[in-house]
């Protein structure tokens, strides 16, 4: 192994650990059942954006993020215009984006867009991931109690003077940001799992909120760290290794469920 390879591996680990931790922390706020779909769907909404970015030679995260903003805006708009439940709207955005993305993304890059390609992670990408992950962490930390309260009851939150819509919007933006980063690690198909799976495992093991979000972050980081190590030693897809590691944690958490 050359020194350059070693550095590359370090960059991958740094990006993975930061993104994995921040994504899992965000995921721990998906307390209401319908929210779990959102993270998953947004990964797919990113796909057409990634396709465009690849065609134009831009950074895929940038393309993904602009489409995610568009997706969030459309879901929000549909929500006002119709009385359909959010999950139905999210589902529509989800399949439509997948179809458009499939058309737009150039075939050689399709696999990369769907499952990620961590071998392309550079120093710049690792640094960007770390900075944005910390930013997301701080934003989410500041809205955490309000979001928990809104998950318990919108009315209760509103009666406390909390602007529930504003908090939700900030939260969705944070998810869009982490998805835009996460697609580089695990691709658009699996990025939702970075958000959902560690928190689901942590919920099984926790008696209180502090245990819950701490454990979510730890499991998110561990999944990425161990998954990337497995990728390094076995040569299997990193995305698959990361998600299977977190799924393994989830299965174990079922045994020790409190």
């Amino acid at each position: 192994m050359s020194i350059a390879m070693d550095n590359q591996f370090l960059f991958i680990l740094i990006a993975g650990i930061f993104i994995g931790g921040a994504a899992a922390y965000l995921g721990s706020l998906m307390l209401a059942k319908r929210m779990a779909l959102v993270g998953d769907a947004l990964g797919h909404v990113a796909l057409p954006g990634m396709g465009l970015a690849l065609l134009l030679g831009l950074d895929v995260s940038l393309g993904a993020f602009s489409f995610l903003l568009l997706g969030i805006f459309l879901i929000w708009l549909f929500e006002i215009k119709t009385s359909l439940p959010t999950e139905a709207l999210v589902g529509i955005a989800f399949v439509a984006s997948l179809a458009v993305g499939f058309l737009i993304v150039p075939e050689p890059e399709l696999l990369e867009a769907l499952f990620g390609d961590i071998s392309k992670i550079s120093f710049g990408m690792a640094a960007t991931s770390a900075v944005f992950s910390i930013l997301i962490f701080l934003i989410v930390k500041s809205i955490y109690p309000k979001m928990v309260l809104a998950s318990i009851s919108n009315d209760l939150a509103k009666s406390e003077g909390i602007g529930v819509k504003k908090q939700n919007f900030i939260y969705l933006l944070s998810i869009a940001l982490i998805v835009a980063l996460g697609i580089k690690i695990v691709g658009s198909l699996l990025v939702g799992a970075l958000v959902i799976v560690p928190a689901a495992a942590a919920r099984n093991l926790s008696r209180n909120l502090k245990e819950y979000y701490s454990l979510s972050i730890i499991l998110g980081i561990l999944s990425c760290f161990l998954g990337i190590l497995l990728f390094e030693f076995t040569g299997f897809s990193a995305a698959a290794m990361i998600i299977l590691t977190s799924t393994f944690f989830f299965l174990v958490s079922l045994i020790f469920k409190r």
């Binding site: 928990v148 998950s151 009851s153 009315d155 209760l156 919920r203 209180n208 909120l209 245990e211």
Partner: peptide, 27 residues
């Protein structure tokens, strides 16, 4: 100042949260 006691909170039991943390949500 108004205090509100809602009728039901069906989701709260699914959330891993201690009573102390519930109070802390209000700082």
């Amino acid at each position: 100042k108004i205090g509100y006691v809602p009728q039901r909170l069906p989701f709260i039991k699914d959330i891993p949260m201690s009573v102390g943390e519930f109070f802390k949500l209000k700082k």
